[in-house]
């Protein structure tokens, strides 16, 4: 049985003003007649965790897929680390993506590869001039960060859901990104494992100073990981503030998320 995670205090707001690393400005995205995002705007500062909260199907995942350039936006601008994603060619986008990690909801581990090969894959693709010894060290370090050093030669199918999530995070961490996008990191996990993942997200933020956009509708995850919370309602950024600020709000649309 896994030991219960150590109690985690709510994160303190990131010191302001800090450099803005990610800007989403008036972004709109529709699928046919279904308008998912309408003039959505959000800034993320260096070293802060912003949770985008919203109902299922509200367009949260679409938003981060637009940020990483997996989907084009219909209107508006997304600037990541100072670069306009829409104007980048393949090569420039690849270079930018080396600095932006993405944790998929389904983990998206390469199921025909071992854990070691999964972690080595992003390194080899980037032509980084690491010797085999340095690569092994990076893999070991990334696995230690998520507490799963012993799984290095296992296949993804041999791992539990929580372990797969951690390995997926390790694969994201191995390139030491400036920004990490988490797509519902605790969905489908039991409460204990979910809190472990929350804690891991905090540890990553503190250890590497990464900025994160976390998509979630798990209020515990929101409370434990967010420096700021953006509420996505009907495609717009309806409210933006700390967890405490939004929880204290009397606005019915905000209150229904925080009423528990």
């Amino acid at each position: 049985m896994l030991p219960a995670p150590a109690p985690v205090a709510a994160p303190a707001p990131a010191p302001a003003p800090a450099e803005i690393v990610l800007t989403v400005a008036n972004v709109s995205k529709a699928f046919g007649t279904n308008q998912v995002l309408r003039n959505f705007s959000l800034d993320v500062r260096r070293g802060e965790n912003v949770v985008v909260l919203g109902k299922s199907g509200a367009g949260k995942s679409v938003l981060i897929k637009c940020i990483i350039g997996l989907m084009p936006v219909d209107a508006g601008t997304i600037r990541v680390l100072g670069q306009d994603v829409a104007t980048l060619d393949h090569t420039a986008l690849d270079q930018l993506r080396a600095k932006v990690g993405f944790l998929f909801q389904s983990n998206a581990l390469y199921d025909s590869m071992t854990v070691r090969e999964n972690l080595l894959f992003p390194l080899r693709r980037h032509w980084l001039t690491h010797s085999p010894g340095e690569e092994d060290e990076l893999v070991r370090q990334a696995l230690e960060d998520v507490g799963l050093g012993h799984t290095i030669d296992m296949m993804p199918a041999e791992l539990s859901g929580g372990m797969r999530k951690r390995i997926a995070l390790a694969r994201t961490l191995i390139l030491q990104p400036d920004i990490i996008l988490y797509d519902e990191p605790t969905t489908g996990l039991d409460p204990v494992t979910a809190r472990e993942i929350d804690q891991l997200i905090r540890e990553v933020q503190q250890k590497y100073g990464t900025s994160s956009v976390i998509i979630s509708h798990d209020m515990n995850c929101v409370r434990l990981t967010a420096n700021r919370v953006a509420l996505l309602v009907e495609g717009r950024c309806y409210a933006l503030g700390t967890y405490a600020e939004l929880k204290a709000s009397t606005d019915p649309a905000i209150h229904e998320f925080f009423s528990e």
Partner: peptide, 21 residues
């Protein structure tokens, strides 16, 4: 199966050209 489990997207966001690979 790689497409529906988002493995192709994962390759793309890790800076690999999945088309080429």
């Amino acid at each position: 199966s790689m497409r529906v489990t988002e493995q192709i997207d994962a390759m793309e966001v890790s800076g690999t050209n999945p088309f080429k690979y």
